[in-house]
Design a protein around this nucleic acid. Structure first.
Length: 437
RNA sequence: CGGGGCGUGGCGCAGUCUGGUAGCGCACCUCGUUUGGGACGAGGGGGUCGGAGGUUCGAAUCCUCUCGCCCCGACCA
């Protein structure tokens, strides 16, 4: 992509409405624009990141056998009356009426919808287990949206739902999601700590929040020091095997969100206790038959008797993660993207657009990188060097290749690593080798 | 929902107390000089001050109502 043609409206000054760093940087980097409180448009740069994250989430869901589908954003109120959540959910649910005066709503989540679909189709224990998910926009009419995409009213969420024959099977599904979450967040470059959590309005008795630590986190959390240093999700695990011992190795250690903290346990930890601010990026629940009962998700068991499906639901705030990653990875100059979610891998800066030698050197490398399948953003604008450096640092691409008259004369390019700040002058071929490794 | 703050060219702000017909920086356009960390000079375009009503000879400024946005707290992917 050529920056001269890319729609990436960067802003030099901090917009006054943005108070936290991720919100500021997303606005300044031209990733998002606000439409109204808690509702955002995703501009090309931001949308690329959103899609990268979505794809990683998708791959890890697929890897544990969850199947992707897509449910609507607008749901009929009757569906929610059946689970008795229509009134219970309160003003956070956006209620609307269609032209025939039917009560509808913009879905804040999809337990009802999926359970109805599943109940209608599943007849036998042979139809279990099943795990289904979709990645869809949700709307929760938060009293107080804030922090940019971190607490929007409209947000993109991956929500998965499991259906099992009995508690043990449901536990296995829960555990698979647990591991998938560890892997997902590890791939995103995050240390997400599973913490015992309240099950909230969804109900149930087995629940973990996945929390990343950041100064601007919304609530205070506490955990054992070892959990922060743990090597998440990189373990080679067979998700078809017994995951319990692996999961216990995490959950044995103290980790609790705000409302689950235990002063005595914390005292016992002594120096191993870490208290920090946290951002919730995922939440998994087991909730038994709460919905399967309401929607009669009942199958014939092996002995012919009726069995009500055991369910769980598993959410990841995909759009929130964009902000969360920035909170966890930035410096004074701007964003520092982990390579896995960077909108482009390489930012190629032509320091002197219009200079034949510089133009040619840039075009060569640009072509080579593209041929190698590497996403590259070429700054071919007719702007001053300082502006180009500043913009490139701001948008935080992992690698910068800088080409100016001096480098061209010397037959080298300057390669800069955004995260470490290291620069090296090497041949174009050597740079290519490094970037394509 | 309780408490607080703010709406003035694209962005950041001053002007509001003490009414007199809108200003600064950045950005943008043109020309020239520049060109490795957000250049300099000259010229230029763009706002009737969130909206409605009122007071007044006269309202960004005073009064009433209203809409929106942000922050703190209580609640949540």
């Amino acid at each position: 992509m050529r920056l001269s043609r890319f729609f990436m409206p960067t802003i030099k000054e901090n917009p006054s409405e943005a108070q936290i760093v991720s919100h500021r940087l997303m606005l300044r980097a031209g990733m998002i624009r606000q439409s109204s409180a808690g509702i955002y448009s995703w501009l090309p740069l931001g949308f690329r990141v959103l899609q990268k994250i979505e794809q990683i989430v998708r791959q890890e869901q697929d890897a544990i056998g969850a199947q992707e589908m897509l449910m609507p954003t607008i749901q009929p109120a009757d569906l929610w009356r059946q689970s008795e959540r229509y009134d219970a959910y309160g003003p956070e649910m956006l209620r609307i009426t269609d032209r025939h005066d039917r009560d509808m709503l913009y879905g804040p989540t999809n337990e009802e919808q999926i359970t109805e679909i599943f109940a209608d189709a599943a007849k036998s224990y042979r139809d279990l287990p099943r795990m289904l998910y979709h990645i869809q926009w949700k709307f929760r009419d938060e009293v107080r949206p804030r922090f940019g995409v971190m607490r929007g009213r409209e947000f993109l969420m991956k929500d998965a739902y499991s259906f099992d024959l009995d508690f043990d099977a449901a536990r296995r599904s829960y555990n698979k999601q647990f591991v998938a979450y560890l892997k997902t967040f590890a791939r995103l470059g995050l240390t997400a700590i599973p913490m015992k959590a309240d099950s909230g309005p969804i109900g149930g008795d087995m629940s973990h929040e996945f929390v990343i630590l950041a100064e601007t986190g919304e609530s205070e959390v506490a955990c054992h020091r070892d959990l922060i240093a743990a090597d998440w999700g990189n373990a080679d695990i067979n998700t078809e095997g017994d995951l319990q011992p692996f999961i216990d190795s995490f959950t044995d250690k103290y980790a609790a969100t705000d409302d689950k903290r235990d002063p005595e346990a914390e005292k016992a930890l002594g120096d191993d206790l870490v208290v920090a601010r946290g951002i919730e990026v995922g939440h998994i629940f087991y909730f038994g038959t709460k919905y399967s009962k309401a929607f009669k998700a009942v199958v014939a068991g092996p002995d012919g008797s009726d069995v009500t499906a055991e369910m769980g639901s598993y959410g990841i705030g995909v759009s929130r993660l964009v902000g969360g990653i920035i909170e966890a990875s930035h410096d004074d100059a701007g964003i520092i993207w982990p390579e896995a979610v960077a909108p482009f891998k390489v930012g190629l800066i032509n320091l002197k657009t219009g200079d034949d030698a510089c133009d040619k050197a840039c075009e060569d490398i640009y072509r080579q990188l593209q041929d190698a399948g590497i996403e590259v953003l070429l700054d071919d604008r007719d702007a001053r060097a300082g502006a180009k450096f500043a913009d490139m640092d701001l948008i935080g691409l992992p690698w910068q290749v800088v080409i100016g008259p001096k480098a061209v004369a010397a037959g080298v390019v300057e390669l800069k690593n955004r995260a470490r700040g290291e620069r090296q002058e090497i041949s174009a071929d050597a740079a290519m080798a490094l970037l394509t490794a």
